[in-house]
């Protein structure tokens, strides 16, 4: 498809604008999804940790570690929850869901702390770990690791969907822009052809010329102007008459 030279820059401008919109909305989307999901995950995991902490009080005070394990086994089935461990007030891990063993990073950490931390466990992935004290910390603490890989996956999905949508709009937009440019350029093409024919002292196609001269826009004005200049030139005799012109006379 031939793009008129006059509109090429405009077309490139449109493409550039599309690019800017696509990239900026994607970046905004990444930021929004990442922030929202991270906050949501953290809030959810804190809620779960608190629920377990509240439910653990009696169990811990009765030293019923079997029931404690049974409790956390149910919560670890929630999507996004990767691991749970419960520590005593001295930091001893009393129940956990790690397989094949408790990672060294967890053992080395401050088990009594309940602040939110980001953990990277070799071979397991990256996690946001939140904690909740049991009985204000005097009975221990619950720690929950949420898989940030899942957040990353959700972000990727959201971005992927956005990029797909933008690409589709871009493709449709490109074809639409070309069609509009061509549509807009058609009268200019007509004026150009009309002017060339006048210059060659050829009689333009009657139907086309009359339609062009009848237009009530810039193209019509330009055609009438060219015709006027042509007639003025003929009257002043500055242009030799062509055979066809003579015939008309």
């Amino acid at each position: 498809m031939k793009i008129p030279k006059l509109f090429r820059k405009t077309l490139f401008g449109v493409f550039f604008l599309f690019g800017v919109i696509g990239v900026s909305t994607s970046l905004l989307c990444i930021y929004t999804v990442d922030t929202h999901l991270s906050k949501e995950y953290e809030a959810n995991s804190k809620g779960i940790a608190k629920t377990i902490a509240d439910a653990s009080v009696n169990i811990l005070l009765n030293s019923n570690l079997t029931a404690l394990q049974s409790l956390i086994d149910q919560f670890v089935e929630i999507q996004g929850v990767s691991y749970i461990y419960i520590t005593s007030e001295t930091g001893e891990i009393l129940a956990h869901t790690f397989v094949p063993g408790i990672p060294e990073e967890i053992r080395a950490g401050d088990a009594t702390s309940t602040t939110t931390v980001e953990r990277s466990l070799p071979g397991k992935g990256d996690f946001i770990e939140v904690g909740s004290p049991i009985l204000a910390g005097v009975a221990g603490a619950v720690h929950i690791g949420m898989d940030t890989g899942l957040i990353a996956l959700k972000i990727q999905r959201a971005i992927g969907q956005q990029i797909y949508l933008i690409c589709m709009i871009f493709v449709v937009g490109v074809f639409a822009a070309i069609w509009f440019v061509n549509y807009a350029a058609k009268p200019v093409d007509g004026v150009l052809t009309f002017a060339v024919e006048l210059a060659r002292e050829q009689s333009a196609d009657g139907g086309t010329s009359s339609k062009l001269l009848a237009r009530n826009d810039e193209a019509g004005d330009l055609a009438r102007l060219f015709l006027h200049f042509s007639q003025v030139t003929d009257v002043q005799g500055t242009r030799p008459q062509s055979g066809s012109d003579r015939g008309k006379e």
Binding site: S63, L65, T66, A67, L68, Q69, D73, A95, F98, V99
Partner: peptide
């Protein structure tokens, strides 16, 4: 076993 049974024996 990483469940209530294993924890019972561990305890």
């Amino acid at each position: 076993q990483a469940d209530a049974y294993g924890r019972s024996g561990w305890a």
